Computed example of a mutant assay.
Amino acid sequence: RAVPIVNENDTVAVDEIRVGDNDTLAALVACLVDADLLILLTDLDGYYTDDPHKNMAAELIPEIYKITPEIEVGAGGRGSALATGGMETKIMAAKTTMQVGIPLVIASGMRKGTLQAVLKGEPVGTLFVPQEDRMQARKQWIAFGSPVQGKVFVDDGAAAALLNKGKSLLPSGVVRAEGIFTAGNVIEIVDLSGREIARGISNYPIDELQLIKGHNSREIQKILGYHDYDEVVHRDNLTIVSNEHK
């Protein structure tokens, strides 16, 4: 059984290829290799209800099945002098791996035998339990493996259709678009509050999307002079990244 150790080399990394923290990098590598498990070691025993360095009453949470906004807020600012990122980036890494079906454990790197205990299935640290089905490799690539080139804001009806009905994104649901992207680029899809709900491959460049946004698909031919796709993003090229979809 292989247990690779992932670390970003800060001395040679450049901005163009820098991930920024080892937790995010480890999560991306875990997705890339379809790992059985990701273990993040820190100077804490796991995820606590509060910062145990400041609150002696803080309790360790042994298992987490869903990363709620409260968990994300609670992780903010809990850094470590031993590594980049801190607890906040570990929670974001867990959010990534849980979505693709890979379990993640946050445990202490200061205690002897931690890795052996985790691999034996012993209750060590905090286990983030993933959704039942693993995300397809293509969906993983869209969500986490490709740089995002732009952002598309959608109305409430389109957001609900994407999250709850598995629909494609049509131009009628697009309110506005930002960034510089062309057809084939990965874009963020966000609701009107700016909350990211999905990522997908755009069928249209931003200049053409600006022209057809808010219009029915039947009008694309008249507006652009051609009509290759009804959808801005087809559901086969779209990955939900929000925890709120059904």
Rank of each mutant, 00 (worst) to 15 (best):
N7M: 11
D10W: 07
D10K: 14
V14F: 12
V14E: 08
V14T: 14
E16F: 10
R18S: 15
G20F: 05
D21H: 10
T24I: 15
L25D: 05
A26D: 05
A27V: 09
L28N: 11
A35E: 03
L37A: 03
I39V: 15
T42E: 04
D43C: 13
D45S: 13
Y48N: 09
Y48H: 12
D51N: 15
H53Q: 11
L60F: 11
I61M: 15
P62I: 11
Y65H: 15
P69D: 00
E70V: 00
I71F: 10
G76T: 08
A81S: 13
A81P: 00
A83F: 08
A83R: 11
E88Q: 14
K90P: 10
I91R: 11
A94C: 12
K95S: 10
K95Y: 06
G109A: 06
K112Q: 11
G113A: 01
G113T: 00
Q116P: 00
L119G: 00
P123S: 02
G125V: 11
F128G: 08
P130S: 06
Q131G: 09
E132G: 03
R134K: 14
M135Y: 00
M135C: 04
A137L: 14
A137H: 12
K139S: 12
K139P: 00
Q140H: 01
W141Y: 14
F144Y: 11
S146L: 15
P147I: 04
K151H: 13
D155I: 03
G157R: 05
A160G: 00
L162A: 01
L163Y: 00
K167F: 02
L170W: 01
G173N: 04
A177E: 07
A183M: 08
D191W: 01
S193T: 12
G194R: 09
G194H: 10
E196S: 14
I197F: 01
I197G: 00
A198S: 04
R199N: 07
R199F: 07
Y204M: 07
I206G: 02
Q210G: 14
G214E: 02
N216I: 02
N216Q: 03
S217C: 09
R218K: 08
Q221G: 09
L224D: 06
L224A: 04
L224W: 05
H227Q: 08
Y229M: 06
Y229G: 02
V232F: 10
V233Y: 09
V233S: 05
H234S: 14
D236P: 03
N243T: 12
N243K: 14
